[in-house]
Nucleic acid binder design. Structure first.
Lengths: 239, 239
DNA sequence: CCCCTTCCGTACGGTGACGTACATAGAAAT
DNA sequence: ATTTCTATGTACGTCACCGTACGGAAGGGG
């Protein structure tokens, strides 16, 4: 990646860096590198060392819990509001769960040791990462309840909204097969849910591409869990 | 609570304090108070300030996500291996979720400001709480997947095992009604699941009291999620 | 151009859990 | 002892989602 892409305006594409003052950003800059993440690129595998943390710019990453029989369910997503590799921030050397890139794009990469050495208690980024840790926990907690109580269609709408919040243009690559794995349901169930949402003109999709047509309509169709999580993430940077 | 109950042997009943050296424990002691928590005593309410954090000794607390219609699902439990009020550790002043006491007993209480002032980066307790934060996240994440993929009976068995790990004597108060709320299912579903487990001689219960008769048998009946979570919590103190 | 792969629609029987409701039995209260 | 309350057993119809399977349609590569 060339040095020109390492400019402040690019770095500030991640909201955490966007909230830093010039001095702190300059201080960290030597430790940062903008990289491109490819679809389904694995960032961490369970129980393996975490070499880098990533601050997404226009990419989105997923954290998934994998069962012994291979079944997997998404338990968290990280976009330009956060950082992947939170366990490093919490002092761990290995990842507890698997992570991979869900929407390809750019991200800011930082070595785990640099994060530990440079992002010291008292710094603004340290404080932001603490808030981000809490927001990520709330995401997992609310999703847990949501998985228990709400329908496939509501959860699918929620997933689409979370992703829509993090990409430009309101359109992104997504197959029903992929979404079914994220939600932990059959593809056929996603087909039914997506068909219903499309039938109401809320989304349009074809051959692995989705476009959100009516955000407000989608929000009306999903459960309150979207609002709860969204509010928590907004609060993270806001105050 | 009398001063005699504030002795080191009592304090070390919480594993976090049990892992501290004498010096650090002495330093913190003036800020600690042993209190009794009653069944269903509310510790935190969503969006309200957190005044104290609690380090359970022989009590167990639950964190629950509550929906607008009043439905609630447990998203985390904390026993003598941890601390309630993690958001304080992460810099928040208000609780994102509701917490209450699930198994009555003793806990060490500490004012939120004391935690912030005394548990400084670099201290042993600070490091332990970082690990605990990660373990709590893994708990929520694995539960999320578990809620999606596993049966009521498996989840009920997991809940019983988690609680059994944290109480003395292998017996504790628990009604089917209460467990059904924790799991987010009908009481009738719990009745069926519990009846099956009792029929196989794994547990015995009667009028709000449960006794675990066959731990190994229960572990064989639950899903892998129990082992994953248990391992994460063991690792927290171990290394 | 045709093949082949990917992606999506749909169907069918099966089932676990749902909402609801009622009955019983032990414990507590009077 | 009788009543009252709480905890548990159980039943019935309903439904969302499951596992599986097959066919069609859209694109990509040869």
């Amino acid at each position: 990646m060339s040095e020109t892409e390492n400019g402040n305006s690019t770095l500030r594409g991640n909201k955490l860096f966007g909230a830093l003052d010039e001095g702190e950003l300059e201080r960290l800059r030597p430790h940062l590198e903008v990289v491109a993440l490819e679809l389904k690129q694995v960032l961490y595998e369970a129980d393996k060392p975490i070499e880098y943390v990533y601050f997404p710019i226009d990419s989105v990453s997923s954290v998934i819990a994998t069962m012994e029989d291979g079944q997997a369910v998404e338990v968290g997503t990280i976009g330009n509001e956060g950082m992947t590799g939170l366990p490093v921030f919490l002092g761990a050397k290995t990842a507890p769960l698997t992570s991979f890139c869900q929407i390809p794009g750019k991200a800011i990469r930082m070595a785990s040791e640099s994060l530990r050495a440079e992002v010291v208690p008292g710094s603004r980024l340290h404080e932001l990462l603490q808030r981000h840790t809490e927001a990520t926990f709330v995401f997992a907690a609310q999703s847990s309840a949501c998985n228990r109580l709400h329908s496939v269609e509501q959860r699918a709408a929620r997933w689409l909204l979370h992703t829509h919040d993090r990409v430009d243009g309101g359109e992104f690559a997504l197959t029903q097969e992929f979404l079914s794995q994220m939600l932990g349901v059959r593809r056929a169930s996603v087909s039914a849910a997506a068909g219903a949402l499309q039938g109401e003109g809320l989304i349009a999709y074809s051959r692995g591409n989705v476009r959100v047509l009516d955000r407000a309509g989608l929000e009306a169709r999903t459960c309150e869990c979207y609002r709860v999580i969204r509010r928590e993430f907004d609060r993270m940077i806001g105050d």
